[in-house]
Design a protein around this nucleic acid. Sequence first.
DNA 1: CGAATGTTTGAAGGTGATCAAATGGGGTGG
DNA 2: CCACCCCATTTGATCACCTTCAAACATTCG
Lengths: 255, 255
Amino acid sequence: MPQFVHLDSTPSPLHKSPHPVDTRSRCTNCAMQQRCLPSGLSETDTRRLDSIMVRHRVWRNDLLYRMGDRFASIYVIRLGHFKTYQVNAEGVEQITGFPMSGDFLGMDAIGAGCHPSFAVALEDSELCEIPFARLETLFSEMPALLRRFHRSLGQEISREQNSMLLMGNLRAEQRFASFLVNVSRNYRARGFSPTSFVLRMTRQDIGNYLGLTIESISRLLTKFARIGWIRVNQREIELLDLPRLTSLVTQKSCY
Amino acid sequence: MPQFVHLDSTPSPLHKSPHPVDTRSRCTNCAMQQRCLPSGLSETDTRRLDSIMVRHRVWRNDLLYRMGDRFASIYVIRLGHFKTYQVNAEGVEQITGFPMSGDFLGMDAIGAGCHPSFAVALEDSELCEIPFARLETLFSEMPALLRRFHRSLGQEISREQNSMLLMGNLRAEQRFASFLVNVSRNYRARGFSPTSFVLRMTRQDIGNYLGLTIESISRLLTKFARIGWIRVNQREIELLDLPRLTSLVTQKSCY
DNA sequence: CGAATGTTTGAAGGTGATCAAATGGGGTGG
DNA sequence: CCACCCCATTTGATCACCTTCAAACATTCG
């Protein structure tokens, strides 16, 4: 698996140059309301939560936060795609996820006081910053918000356990199929086409995420295309046989 | 990697036959106080938290909870060792961790309403059950407790990200060294010998956890012993050259 | 004691990594 | 608009690592 060292050391974009978004874009008319903290909250509670949020626009390759940054806020992706990754002592990176609209960022920092991972935008994106200290003050007054927040934290934990299951048990072919099926599910859950989408990340990123080399990813893409399960054009992917892809994942692991 | 299907379907031990422990074993004289929720709490707050906790004793191979069980409580291990694992559609299990005294159990269920994983005792153990609904009522009155709880959740998330880094980037030798070093650190943090300990889990479990076969684990053990880095006698392990083991992990990954 | 489970060791094979080179797009500047 | 470069991707050939299969051995528990 190719390695790349993290060299960039410019400050996080939100620290040097925030791009506040039109403040009229409130929670109440946000498409991601159901996946976000306001879900299940009353009108008035939503408004209070809304009032502490700060909207931002970030550009492709912008670093939202870097490993070691002091933790101050969590974020919800309003629009766009990110990747999160860790970097070990030698500068080797491991991508831990590809969060997209409606997903949270920065949850892993809550325990530590500083971010244990990086988050970078894969495309121009919009997100909501939630200053954590201010969020905490709301918890005491809005139990429903706290429960909602805990649910998100718990989901984050079990999502990562799933990734472990994937990395530990599946062969290359299954891992990649699992990746495609997951992307498909994510798009379906957000009302987009589950069978036709554009991958926002490079083959490199996919390989890193799945613990495979870029060459393996490329070969798997051509293989799946040859069988007729998918159609590939650059980063455009069309899933022609989602059932078969799914069954590949749930098949008994080979080893 | 050998697979084994989860067949046992007896109810969780705490549901059929709780083993309440001497109620005099309070938080205030608990050895794990610093790693647990009372950490940083006032005397009175600790006592209130203490009052909602239920102590249990479980035996080796007892299932604390199973995947699909309704979520009602989180647990803190007071004494002993557990393993947590998921089981996919085909019954293939993936061990996600080996929590020990001072660690939490059941955190991954908070998001879901039911447990997304299994927890089984690797030896006779003691733990504190914290009914989650009652814990939530305390949150509103004890902000310090809430912050402490969030820290634990965040740590759980970043701990699992570390496991992903391990599984995705390291070779068999490094994974196993990393496992040993981690066990060592855990014991050191709890005041036990970091160089001499008994592994509570089978080779099977270690292999499953690391994404390797039992044979590979066995070979790595003999290899490390031959080099003189460790001494092995059954499940007793002595780390003779912890620095070298550590450096192996932080070495540049091979692929 | 016997059965079941866990562990070690050996030999062989396959999967995916590595190395190498060619191909193709996208962006920049002329 | 084209030429150029850079980067991402594809494809091929070889090889190493780790799995698989097999069998012996050790340990635990009824």
